[in-house]
Amino acid sequence: MCEHCGCQERKKEIALEKKILAQNEEIAARNRRHFQEKGIKVINLISAPGSGKTTLLEATIEALRDKIPMAVIEGDPETERDAERIRKKGVPVVQVTTGGACHLDALQVHRAFHQLEENHFRLLFIENVGNLLCPSAFDLGEDLRVVLVSVPEGSDKPAKYPASFFRAQVSLITKIDLLPYFDFDLKEVQKLALQINPRLRIIPLSAKTGEGLSLWLKLLEDLASR
């Protein structure tokens, strides 16, 4: 009974401890089971716009296409441009346009995966919407989460965007061919990233010159054969 006026209103407090994104996580768990059954390993690539996700994918496809069949889901707020670039490399690709939204969610990936399913592939790359913050909260059902930082962005990125590094397993420092031209401290970025996630595997590379790329490719080959 209400303590103020004696009316019949009743209150109830419920302790929940429920994840805000519980629904997304349920779908992500279903995606993960589905991928497992099909023997497909999934990589979620997260970075700010222009960090080189698409360029990295192009180089990765070039290097691995004779060894491992691959497919790509491209997330962008608008346009098919990135999907076009990947299509030119002869790999099945689905573009998801989020209509302005800043991240992909598990349901969008589920739908995109069904569009790809008729193809045979063992590695599926999901290029998330270019944004270093928002995609980090959304599990897509991936096996490996990779966060990219490019040299022109500056070495303090992990300190500014800890969420992306906290939930990733791998961090790629991209465009290291530009190191001579930027005030970018490789040691600092590694130190800052490990302060947020001590288990993070950090690989500096350049998709343009190929430096460091072999470590990334090795990691993918190991993942695919697991």
Binding site: A15, K18, L194
Partner: peptide, 22 residues
């Protein structure tokens, strides 16, 4: 030894207080 991230990513609803139907 490098630690495992154990807490810090939480996004949870802890408690809700409702007014029930009369």
């Amino acid at each position: 030894v490098p630690g495992l991230p154990a807490g810090g990513g939480e996004l949870e609803i802890k408690k809700v207080e409702f007014l029930l139907e009369e």
